[in-house]
Simulated scan of single mutants.
Amino acid sequence: MDTTTDSAAGEGARQHTAGRRDAQHLDQAQASVLAELGRTDAKAGALLAALALPLAVLAAALPGRSWPPAATVLMTLGGVGYALALLLVLVTVRPRLPRSARASFHSWADLNPEELPAALEAPTEQAATIVMLSRLTRTKYRALRVAIDIAAAATVLLAAALFTI
């Protein structure tokens, strides 16, 4: 019995199993990041709707009426705050996938059908894409948090304006 051959075969099997396990972990990580990215977009969509309503009310209520100066200033600042928050959310939902994301639909669109299987088996590129998508998701969450903070401050300003009328 040749122990060198047996140990080499065993090592090869362990590497194959480890490689398959690593690929599964990459697939799970990518699915997790994509799900989180989808959640940020859903939150941004809800926030867009929530911010549009007060802006519409302000656009209808402010022009052509005589308001006390303090109320006018507070409503204007509140309206500007809502507009800034809305703009930040719009920037957040704007698609921005760089062409360098090789393990995504963006790069697959440039491939021939024969080239796709090789592109799908590149774990290094998949790992780079997971990192890129994770950073994108984190940036979107931060932007949404800032937009919510701005909208909250704008709501306080509008509520204060009501007390000056």
Rank of each mutant, 00 (worst) to 15 (best):
E11T: 10
E11Q: 15
G12T: 12
G12R: 09
A13F: 04
A13Q: 02
R14Q: 03
T17Q: 11
T17N: 04
T17K: 11
T17W: 10
A18K: 09
A18G: 01
G19N: 08
G19H: 07
R20P: 01
R21K: 08
R21M: 09
R21W: 12
D22I: 13
D22Y: 15
A23L: 07
A23I: 01
H25S: 05
L26R: 11
L26W: 09
D27N: 08
D27A: 14
Q28D: 14
Q28H: 06
Q28W: 03
Q28K: 12
A29Q: 06
Q30E: 04
S32P: 00
S32C: 08
S32Y: 07
S32D: 11
S32T: 14
L34R: 13
A35Q: 14
A35P: 06
E36L: 14
E36V: 08
E36D: 09
L37H: 15
G38L: 01
G38P: 02
G38V: 07
R39F: 11
R39Q: 11
T40L: 06
D41H: 12
D41L: 10
A42Y: 05
A42M: 13
A44W: 00
A44V: 06
G45T: 14
G45C: 02
G45M: 02
L47F: 10
L47D: 05
L47N: 07
L47K: 09
L47P: 03
L48T: 13
L48M: 12
L48Q: 12
L48F: 03
A49C: 15
A50Q: 02
A50R: 09
A50I: 08
A50C: 08
L51C: 13
L51T: 13
L51A: 13
A52K: 09
A52Y: 12
L53S: 07
L53H: 00
P54Q: 10
P54M: 04
L55S: 04
L55C: 12
L55M: 15
A56Q: 07
V57W: 08
V57G: 08
L58C: 04
A60D: 05
A61T: 05
L62H: 01
P63K: 10
P63Y: 10
G64E: 03
G64C: 04
R65V: 11
R65W: 11
R65E: 04
S66I: 05
P68H: 11
P69E: 10
P69H: 08
P69I: 04
P69G: 10
P69K: 07
A70W: 10
A70E: 06
A71V: 07
A71R: 13
A71F: 07
T72D: 02
V73E: 00
V73W: 12
V73Y: 04
L74Y: 06
M75E: 14
M75Y: 15
M75C: 14
M75D: 15
T76H: 00
T76L: 12
L77R: 03
L77H: 00
L77A: 14
G78L: 15
G78R: 11
G78W: 12
G78Q: 03
V80H: 01
V80L: 05
V80Y: 06
G81V: 10
G81E: 00
G81K: 01
G81W: 00
Y82P: 02
Y82R: 05
